[in-house]
Nucleic acid binder design. Structure first.
Length: 750
DNA sequence: TATCGATCCCGCTCT
DNA sequence: GGGATCGATA
């Protein structure tokens, strides 16, 4: 028997023991959220709830697997067939049994790369933006489209709000969107968003099925609820609407997926969606030592938080987080690796992580780790299943399952010398229309492609296990692999062997294919015991390490430069910074390079510290600066800097420092407020903050108007310096330096 | 007319 | 390092 009362704190205990009725569990970072879910699962099993009546929706499949595994360990026995995974995987598992109208003969899931390809195809087909250099790129159009669907607003609305400068292309973008939708329908394809909407459609039009699934899943838990979007919340409502045994777990302060349509309002509205919701807050932090917690609390202090939390820890000791200022991002890599070498005497490699905003930022660190012989695993950034050879091999398999899958067909066709998109399409049409004469003619010309199609036909006739299918495809593909990648073909072949290993864990081919599209398997990362971790902050969500190093904490990188124009985007970056720092249990290192290598500037360009670092009270960290000789020197601060902002008043280091609720309510300060408050601030050497632009002499160009002053939502009032055709201005903002801003975001003064 | 190769520009996060 | 674009080639 598990002694729940002894092993959980009162709030956790209540959450784990309340099985009936709606529960909203607001779980601060490190507050034992996973533990609570695990114990709740165990409790359900002990109470005799059959495993197949439980649905556990999580953000990644890995997260749900780990929770189930831990629950089994706790119980000392298997708990059987709990349904667990992401919303998307759940949607697919239902839809494959009840395919939408017109999709009965095959239902392929498009991953992001497939979708982009299809969109480009539609764009070219329409000839949209041909010859227009400022027409948005495929990736941009895709982003707008996805936002429109995820936020359930029409495209014009999204353009208006998110990309005003593209508003003129509204009609073109809408036409592309329509063409893309038709393309998917015609070729039996579903993208990520379709999965959710099709499931909603199914459940809301088929009362019998809805009733079936309500009976089937009598207990539902949804993790990371703050990152669900509108349709996901409606799915929860549909599924739990009968019995109402549903627990949502999340933390509004850790919402980092608004860019993808996640809606923080969902978690705030949950009690309205399920009246009578029991609200439980987990506020004790078990993860981080006090100095780390003090710093993370300070990051959040300026942010408006709807469910106010005051995190406190019982963990004693720990040293101050370190703020390290390398001379450049190149030397940053050295310093990071040196620090890791040092940390390795204290921590296991698996307990050390380097985090960053975007995948490409870890490049130098990866190089230096390689040189130093320190093994690492990288999460986020490039995907395993994005690799060209993996996509090639999977195209055979996808074509087996869905003969209409044009992207897969085109991909195989394009690998044959002499076949491009047009010829590929011609052959596809001939084959689909059963135009034997033309098909035969074309295939005579390209015998290699005939072999490809014959292989697919042969495989389709047999009934092989997924791994066997892959073996067959691999044997066929190997010569082409060698021809296509003569230089690094062994590495790629190794990757394909891993693909077979993954396939071996499946019995159903379509589940293997869909899982691969829905979630990156990253086989390299699977056994990471002896490796340190490199990860994007997004991929680090829900994880923790003894030692965490965050790199590139400079303006335009973290926060990312595209988040500077809207206050709400900047708030999301702040939460992202919060998520990053709260991953650390004991050591937290913040790396702020003074310059960033850039090709455009022909070398290093100076960089300003990230506002998230700049705004931290100095007593919360110790600062180290790199000397020109390569060493690090501790920096002492003059006293007055500690008193800079009201919100940053020094506190006793051992105080639990919960920001009082009153303060937080009054201080719903946006970044704009914070920015103007620190508007005249200078850097510690007395030099006003400058952006890279300052250092590049710009020729004075004729301007269409007399330059005066303007106002920007975030940077405040600034002086117009130069018109940057067609629609931008270079503006000097006191305290922020020169920025190039779209005219649409500037309020001009006459 | 379609494909292929060289060059330029620009770089986010993910199911 | 990859996508878009443009000019050379079959």
């Amino acid at each position: 028997m598990i002694d729940f009362k002894k092993e959980l704190n009162p709030a956790q205990y209540e959450a784990a023991m309340t099985l009936e009725g709606p529960v909203l569990c607001i779980a601060g970072a490190g507050s034992g959220k996973t533990r609570t879910i695990v114990y709740r699962l165990a409790n359900m099993v002990e109470q005799g709830v059959p495993a197949y009546e439980i649905l556990l929706l999580t953000f990644t499949r890995k997260a749900s697997q780990e929770m189930l595994h831990r629950a089994e360990t706790l119980l000392g026995r298997g708990i059987g067939a709990v349904s667990g995974g992401t919303f998307h995987a759940f949607a697919y598992s239902v839809l494959r049994q009840h395919p939408p109208a017109g999709r009965e003969n095959g239902l392929s899931i498009m991953d992001a790369a497939d979708a982009a390809e299809a969109l480009k195809y539609c764009k070219d087909l329409l000839g949209a933006g041909k010859g227009d250099k400022s027409f948005p790129k495929t990736a941009t159009v895709m982003g707008m489209l996805s936002k429109s669907r995820n936020k359930e607003r029409d495209i014009g609305d999204i353009l208006q709000r998110e990309a005003f400068h593209l508003a003129a292309y509204r009609n073109d973008i809408e036409a592309i969107a329509q063409s893309y939708a038709a393309y998917k329908q015609e070729h039996g394809l579903l993208d990520y968003d379709d999965l959710l909407f099709e499931l909603e459609h199914l459940l809301s039009t088929r009362a019998d099925l809805l009733e079936f699934y309500r009976q089937r899943f009598r207990y539902i838990m949804v993790d990371e609820y703050q990152d669900t979007n509108l349709v996901q919340s409606r799915l929860v409502q549909l599924l739990a609407g009968g019995h109402r045994n549903v627990m949502a777990v999340g933390d509004d302060a850790q919402s980092i997926y608004a860019f993808r349509g996640a809606n923080v309002q969902n978690i705030l509205q949950f009690p309205n969606m399920f009246p009578g919701t029991k609200l439980i807050k987990l506020e004790e932090n078990y993860r981080s030592v006090q100095p780390v917690l003090n710093l993370t609390n300070a990051i959040l202090e300026d942010a408006p938080a709807a469910f106010h939390k005051s995190l406190f820890t019982s963990r004693t000791g720990g040293s101050l987080p370190q703020l390290v200022k390398p001379l450049s991002d190149l030397t940053q890599a050295n310093l990071v690796v040196n620090k890791i070498a040092e940390l390795r005497s204290l921590y296991q490699p698996g307990e050390i992580a380097v985090l960053f905003r975007a995948g490409y930022q870890s490049y130098h660190v990866e190089m230096q780790l390689g040189k130093a012989g320190i093994p690492f695993r990288k999460y986020g950034g490039l995907k395993y299943s994005d690799a060209a050879h993996v996509k090639d091999v999977m195209s055979y398999v996808r074509l087996m399952l869905n003969p209409l899958d044009l992207p897969a067909f085109q991909r195989l066709a394009a690998n044959v010398k002499g076949i491009g998109p047009k010829t590929g399409l011609k052959i596809y049409e001939a084959s689909r229309m059963q135009n034997v004469a033309e098909l035969d003619k074309a295939l005579k010309k390209y015998p290699n492609f005939r072999k490809d199609l014959e292989l697919v036909d042969t495989l389709r006739r047999q009934r092989l296990q997924p791994a066997e299918v892959l073996e067959e495809v691999l044997e066929h593909y190997r010569p082409r692999l060698m021809a296509l990648y003569p230089d690094d073909y062994p590495r790629r072949e190794h990757g394909l062997d891993q693909l077979v290993q993954i396939a071996a864990t499946y019995r159903e081919l379509d589940l293997f294919v869909s899982d691969l599209s829905l979630e990156d398997p990253n086989p390299e990362a699977a056994q990471a015991e002896n490796h340190i971790t490199l990860s994007t902050v997004h991929s680090a969500k829900g994880l923790e390490w003894d030692a965490v190093l965050i790199i590139d904490l400079v303006e335009e990188r973290f926060p990312s430069k595209q988040a500077l124009q809207k206050a709400e985007d900047l708030e999301e970056e702040r939460r992202l910074m919060y998520v990053a720092c709260t991953r650390a249990r004991e050591y937290l290192g913040l790396f702020v390079p003074s310059s960033i290598y850039s090709r455009g500037g022909g070398g290093n360009e100076p960089a300003s510290p990230s506002p998230f670092v700049r705004d931290l009270p100095v007593h919360l960290y110790e600062e180290w600066k790199e000397n020109y000789t390569g060493g690090l020197a501790r920096r002492e601060y003059p006293q007055q800097r500690t008193m800079r902002l009201g919100s940053c008043a020094p506190q006793a280091p051992d105080a639990a420092m919960p920001a009082s609720a009153a303060t937080a309510m009054q201080k719903r300060s946006t970044f704009a407020d914070a920015a103007s408050a620190s508007g005249m601030q200078t850097d510690e050497d007395g030099i006003p903050f400058a952006t890279a632009d300052d250092c590049i002499p710009k020729p004075a160009s004729p301007s269409p108007r007399r330059l005066g002053f303007c106002t920007h939502k975030i940077f405040g009032r600034g002086k117009l310096v130069q018109h940057v055709p067609p629609d931008k201005y270079r503006v000097n903002f006191p305290g922020f330096g020169l920025k190039v801003i779209m005219e649409a975001y500037l309020q001009m003064e006459d």
